[in-house]
């Protein structure tokens, strides 16, 4: 057993990492909840967002936290366009096709980034990268604490959007009963694209929160996206609070199992949770479409 001196910071750090995981999972679960497909391009889009955040800082000197306000709308538009003009039309309304198209997009995006920027791993330096604050005797990285705050704000905004706006109501209507929503005059293709845009915008914010302390290379999104899958499955496919709680939980699990088992095996811990949940309680945690 490890002493609390090591354990408590590990748990706190796990929560902070988990917050960003939660944000990535939020995008994924939103898309699943409405479109009923798993977006396999989510990881590649996260990588793209990380590159975008990296270059806005490198080329224009814009602080990533500021850049979020520009990149989120930009990625919203990108996500909207992808669903509206590529994924939707190419899939002919077939779920299996949608899987293939999102996988194809993932391959395209990831390798286009590889082709353009090579496999190098890049980091930015901002003056606060290594700043810490003391919380109850543990030192926490300032950027990650900011990250936690930002994630909570985004989650709140998203919740308000889904509950209070007309678009949000339409999104929930489509998620619940697509045919009924269609009959009552809702433009389902538009709502699908809106949802995909929102999910992608979440990635842009997550990227801006990650980049001050993390690195970017063309494959970096993959590591995150499998974690995000785990969170989404754990929290219940399509459930926003589930994604948040699942994210924090997985952050802690990763941090602790990393402590006990080492970095790589720590990741296996997450996968095992993932596979176990899928196998043992697949119907309990989410609904399967006929």
């Amino acid at each position: 057993m490890l002493s609390p001196v090591i354990l408590i910071p590990a748990i706190l750090n796990g929560l902070l990492t988990g917050a960003v995981y939660a944000l990535i999972a939020l995008g994924l679960t939103l898309i699943y909840g409405v479109l009923h497909i798993i977006n396999f391009a989510h990881g590649a889009l996260l990588t793209a967002a990380l590159f975008a955040a990296y270059f806005t800082q490198k080329l224009f000197g814009i602080d990533p936290y500021l850049a979020a306000f520009a990149l989120a709308p930009l990625f919203f538009v990108l996500g909207y366009a992808l669903q509206r003009f590529v994924i939707g039309p190419a899939s002919h309304g077939d779920d299996r096709n949608m899987l293939l198209v999102t996988l194809g997009l993932a391959v395209i995006i990831e390798n286009a980034l590889l082709y353009a920027f090579h496999a190098d791993t890049r980091t930015i330096d901002v003056r606060y990268s290594f700043e810490t604050i003391a919380v109850g005797g543990s030192f926490l990285a300032l950027p990650r604490v900011i990250g936690l705050g930002a994630v909570l704000i985004v989650a709140l905004l998203l919740w308000a959007l889904l509950r209070l706006t007309d678009t949000g109501k339409a999104i929930r209507a489509v998620a619940k009963e697509k045919l009924g929503a269609e009959l009552s005059g809702i433009d389902v293709a538009h709502i699908y694209a809106m949802t995909f845009g929102l999910g992608t915008a979440c990635l842009a914010v997550a990227a801006c929160l990650l980049i001050p302390t993390y690195y970017v290379n063309p494959h970096v999104g993959n590591a995150f996206v499998l974690v995000a899958f785990t969170i989404v499955v754990l929290g219940g496919m399509g459930s926003v609070p589930g994604a948040l709680i699942g994210g924090l939980f997985i952050g802690v699990v990763e941090s602790l199992s990393g402590l006990y088992l080492g970095e790589s095996l720590g990741q296996i811990g997450i996968f095992l949770i993932f596979i176990l949940v899928l196998l043992v309680r697949p119907s309990g945690l989410f609904g399967e479409r006929a």
Binding site: L105, V107, I108, N111, A112, L113, Y115, A116
Partner: peptide, 13 residues
């Protein structure tokens, strides 16, 4: 590296 896979992905879509 990468370009061949970009083409594969595009071909799939």
């Amino acid at each position: 590296p990468g370009l061949d896979l970009v083409i594969y992905g595009a071909a799939l879509v």
